[in-house]
Write a protein that binds this DNA or RNA. Structure first.
Lengths: 147, 147
DNA sequence: CAAGAAAAATATGTATACATACCATCTCAG
DNA sequence: CTGAGATGGTATGTATACATATTTTTCTTG
């Protein structure tokens, strides 16, 4: 038994598949948004005016990485950034009309595509897998749901 | 229900955790090898003289990506590349003594660390998760085990 | 054997992903 | 208020990850 079959390898493969399915489906629908950008939009829409560090914490990302992600969302016109009045270091991020429209349009697509990622599993197995994945990850580090 | 809880997000988080555990443990042991580099070494040791495209296929990687990975392994003295005599386009990759020694030394470490990635799961759950992950991924695309 | 298709690498460009360093700003101790 | 430490963001450097284009070489087909 070698590196194949190990947890790390399997998880990496799953991530590849997931990313592949996501970009294929979303691009087929005529949008240019990555999985990460979608997750960021989700957090931004759920918490308007959240600063970048907050967005990063919400989706378990690196502060340095989220900067670039939000740069691209801003370039596409999906979000706007403004210096916070309370803390001049912080940049508050808000979705634009176009951003919300884009999210609303691809959300059903993305929801539907989730089962495709695990299409080799029976519905029951899929549910079991997701439950185990959630347990393996544990509670979200940065933010709670009812924030 | 939003982006958290979706398969893609969960899988990405798992991958983060896995990568984190790997590099932490391996670096603590005094080695400078990534998960991907380890997987590549595994394939190279299992199939001496395999070309880069073969390595990429063995671990389900992109040909463009594997080039850089092998560059770094070569810089560290773990592998050597030579132009194939049969096909002058191909670069055959072989592990060096240092490469084999490194691999042998961290293999038990890496094996041990696999359960740490899923430490929140009970042993039974862990096995179930891995079985489901294997099924979800399906048969390896590029190479078969008994090559 | 020549023309064209196919394949192996590499190069280029974009997008994560993260450590580290750095600057600006805020908070807190005193 | 002042200095120290913490925090938000950016910059830099490294390492995936992959699409696409390009080059070199091989294979195919006539």
């Amino acid at each position: 038994m070698k590196a194949h079959g190990m947890a790390g390898h399997l998880i990496r493969r799953l991530n590849q598949i997931s990313t592949q399915v996501f970009s294929t489906r979303v691009q087929a629908a005529g949008f240019d948004v990555t999985q990460v950008q979608f997750a960021a939009m989700d957090a931004i829409l759920a918490h308007p005016g959240l600063d970048q560090a907050g967005v990063a914490a919400a989706i378990a990302y690196d502060r340095a990485t989220i900067g670039g992600v939000i740069d691209r969302l801003e370039q596409k016109g999906y979000v706007v950034r403004a210096v916070s009045k309370r803390d001049r270091r912080a940049r508050e991020v808000r979705a634009t009309e176009a951003g919300r429209a884009m999210f609303d349009e691809i959300l059903p697509l993305v929801t539907a595509l989730q089962s495709e990622v695990l299409e080799r599993l029976e519905p029951k197995e899929r549910a079991a897998f997701l439950a185990l994945a959630r347990k393996a990850i544990g509670p979200a580090p940065g933010m709670t749901e009812q924030g």
